[in-house]
Design a protein around this nucleic acid. Structure first.
Lengths: 260, 260
DNA sequence: CGCGGTGTTGAAAATTGTCAATAATTGTGG
DNA sequence: CCACAATTATTGACAATTTTCAACACCGCG
C-alpha cells in the first residue's frame, strides 16, 4: 500500500498566487481561477461559459471557528461553496434534541436545505476557520437557464446530497457502533484523499460528541469504539489525530465480513 | 377534535371524468387536467405555461403490487410522479443489508437519486397497484429553462427531499423505538390527510418488517411498540388498519413531553 | 382446509446508554 | 510563560433498550 506524498491537512487548497485583496474589489473572486473549480463547478465548460460562471459567486466570506454561517429559520438567499475549512450542519427538534446531519469540507456546497421554503432548516457551524464563496441562488437560477452545464450541475449536486443521505440512513438504520465508526473514518479519509491529503492519516475537526451525534451514538460509545479499534491494531488515535493502520480490516467491519 | 368527512383510503385521486384510454393516444396525459397538479407541479402558472407543462409527462405507467418501478443500477432517464398507489424506496449495501429510505404516495416524486450518476441507486417497489407519470429528465431540463416556475419547482422538490431526509436522520439518530413509531404514524396520517383522507384512520401498505427497516428497528420491536400504544389506549390496531385515538399523546411521545 | 406469509409475544442475550470518576488538552488571564 | 479553568476524552460499573431466537396465532388465498 503506497502512500501518496502528502501535504499536511491544514494546507489550504487556495489557488496559488491569489492572496486576499485588502482593497476588496481589486482581485475579483473568480471560479475560473480557482483550483477547487472541478469540485464546485461543472467540468468541460467553454471559455465563454467559464467567464459567465464567475458571475455565480458574489463574494467570499470568512467564518471563524465556532461561528455560524447560517442558522435554522434564517431567510435563504445563497448557497455556499466551501473554499477552506470544515463545517458541520445540524438540525434541531422542537424538544431541543439535535442531530449532526453532515460534515462538509473544501469544494462541497451547503445551504441546499433552504431552497424549499426560502429559509434555512439547519445550522451550519464552522469547525475550523473557514472561507466560503457566496452564491446567490437567484443568480444560479438565472445563469443555469443560459449555461446548460450549470443547470445539470445544480441538479447533480442536489441529487448527490440525496444519495449521500440515503447512505447515512443505511448507516443509522442498520449498522452497529463499530460499523458506523469504521464507515465514518473511511468516508472521511476518502474525501480527504480526494483533496490531496493522506489516505491513512487524518485530523478530526469535530469532538467525540459531534461524531456521536452524526452516527447516532453517545460520545462514550464513540470513545470506546475508538479504543477497541486501537486495541485491535486497526488505527492509532492521539486525541483528534487518527492514523489508519489497516484499511482492509475497517472495510471488512463495514461490510460485515470475517477478518480471516 | 372534529373528524373531516373522509373518503376511504383506497379511493384514488384521479381526475374525475378521465378514464384510461384503451387506444393509447386518444386521451392525452395532461397535467393541466390532473387534480394532483398542485402536489406535483408549480402553482400560479399562466395558461400558456400550463400548456407547456403538459409536455413534461411523456406517458403513464401502471405498476402492479410488488413490481419494481426502477432498480438500483438501472440507467436513469426519468423522474416519476405518483398518480395512484404507494411505493417504498430502498437502498442495498454491498453486504446485502437493505434499508427502506422512504414511503411515497400520490403526488410525490421519485427517482431523484438517479440524477447524479445517470443511474438509479435505489429500488422503487410498488406496495399496492400504482400508476405513475413518466417525466423524462431531459424534457424537464429543457422546459425548466423556459418556464421559470418549473425550474424553481424542481429545485424545491429536491430540497424538500433533502430536508425530509434530515428529519429521518434525526429520527434514526436520536429517537427511541416509541418515539420513532409515533413520529412515523403521525407523519403518515398527516400526509394522507393532506390528500383528503382521515386524520385518524389509516391503512398501512407495508409490513412490520418494512416499517422496521425504515425506522431502524427489528420487526418484533415494531410489533411490540404497536402493542404498547394499544395498551396505553393511544391507537387501535387490527392488522394493518390503524386508528389513532389520541394524537396529542403520540405527539407528546415524539416531543418527549410528559403526558400529565 | 391447509399453506405461506405476516404478526404477536416471551425469555434471554447483546448492544448501547447512563452516571460517575478521572485524565488529558486547550484556552485564558495573570 | 505558567497556572488555572473549562472543555474534551477515556474508562468502569451498572441500567435500559433493543435484538435474537423461538413458539405460536392469524389471515388471505389457492
Amino acid at each position: 500500500m503506497k502512500e501518496a506524498p502528502v501535504p499536511t491537512q491544514t494546507v489550504n487548497l487556495i489557488p496559488s498566487g491569489s492572496t486576499e485583496p485588502m482593497d476588496a474589489h481589486s482581485i475579483k473572486v473568480a471560479c475560473s481561477n480557482c483550483n477547487l473549480r472541478e469540485l464546485c463547478m461543472p467540468v468541460g465548460l467553454s471559455a465563454e461559459e467559464l467567464v459567465r460562471i464567475d458571475e455565480v459567486v458574489a463574494t467570499r466570506r470568512k467564518i471563524k471557528r465556532g461561528a455560524i454561517l447560517f442558522r435554522n429559520g434564517e431567510p435563504f438567499q445563497s448557497l455556499f461553496a466551501i473554499r477552506t475549512g470544515f463545517f458541520k450542519t445540524c438540525v434541531t427538534a422542537e424538544d431541543g434534541r439535535d442531530q449532526v446531519t453532515g460534515f462538509q469540507m473544501a469544494g462541497e456546497i451547503i445551504g441546499l436545505d433552504g431552497i424549499v421554503n426560502d429559509h434555512h432548516t439547519c445550522d451550519a457551524v464552522a469547525l475550523e476557520d473557514a472561507e466560503v464563496c457566496v452564491m446567490p441562488f437567484d443568480r444560479i437560477g438565472d445563469l443555469s437557464r443560459e449555461v446548460n452545464a450549470l443547470q445539470h450541475h445544480v441538479h447533480r449536486i442536489m441529487s448527490r446530497e440525496i444519495v449521500r443521505e440515503h447512505g447515512v440512513m443505511l448507516l443509522l438504520g442498520s449498522m452497529r457502533a463499530e460499523e458506523r465508526l469504521a464507515a465514518f473514518l473511511l468516508n472521511l479519509v476518502q474525501r480527504l484523499h480526494a483533496r490531496g491529503f493522506s489516505r491513512s492519516e487524518l485530523v478530526l475537526r469535530m469532538t467525540r460528541e459531534e461524531i456521536g451525534s452524526y452516527l447516532g451514538l453517545k460520545l462514550e460509545t464513540v470513545s470506546r469504539t475508538f479504543s477497541k479499534f486501537v486495541e485491535d491494531g486497526m488505527v492509532e488515535v492521539r486525541q483528534r489525530h487518527v492514523r489508519i493502520l489497516d484499511t482492509d480490516s475497517l472495510r471488512a467491519i463495514v461490510n460485515r465480513q470475517s477478518t480471516i
